[in-house]
């Protein structure tokens, strides 16, 4: 069987690619669409470094087949900033030093964006459980959680 042609939307832009049935969406994003911001830490859905949104739903792109992207809307880290304006989460991650090596950061940002879309006012516990699938080995999560809570407050307009 030949490769499958897939038409999809990535970060608001139309995209198409050819892929083998067994190729993961993560491999497609990284190798075919040159969107290397999504990372592979495990390939088994245990680390969250490849987090993206698929039709608005947070998923691990390593657990999605490339062919399943047909007709879907994909959001990746590369689409988080609005042009040259960083998303408040990106700014708060920088201000709070919520990253050290930065490898888990894209996945955490995508996951956090999905959290705040679903729940603009999470408790610390809710944020921690939502992000339990995003492993970070550098920070001990403290500054990440602080950045998330601060960004959420700002996005709710509480810093005005």
């Amino acid at each position: 069987m030949s490769k499958i042609h897939v038409t999809t939307t990535v970060n608001g832009e139309p995209a198409e690619f050819l892929c083998e049935p067994q190729e993961s969406l993560l491999d497609v994003l990284r190798d075919k669409l040159q969107l290397t911001g999504s990372k592979e830490g495990c390939g088994s859905g245990d680390c969250g470094a490849c987090s993206i949104t698929l039709d608005g739903r947070l998923v691990c792109s390593c657990l999605v087949l490339g062919v399943e992207a047909e007709g879907k809307t994909i959001g990746t880290i590369e689409g988080l900033a609005n042009g040259d304006e960083l998303h408040p989460l990106q700014r708060k991650f920088l201000e709070h030093a919520a990253l050290q090596c930065g490898f888990c950061t894209p996945g955490l940002l995508v996951a956090t964006k999905a959290l705040l879309d679903a729940n603009p006012n999470p408790t610390e516990t809710e944020a921690r459980f939502w992000l339990a699938g995003n492993l970070c080995r550098c920070t001990g999560y403290d500054k990440i959680i602080r950045a998330v809570m601060d960004a959420a407050a700002e996005m709710r307009g509480e810093h005005a």
Partner: peptide, 11 residues
């Protein structure tokens, strides 16, 4: 920092 929060950093 910006490279690392936007996915541009090259690992």
């Amino acid at each position: 920092g910006i490279d690392k929060v936007t996915g541009k950093a090259m690992f």
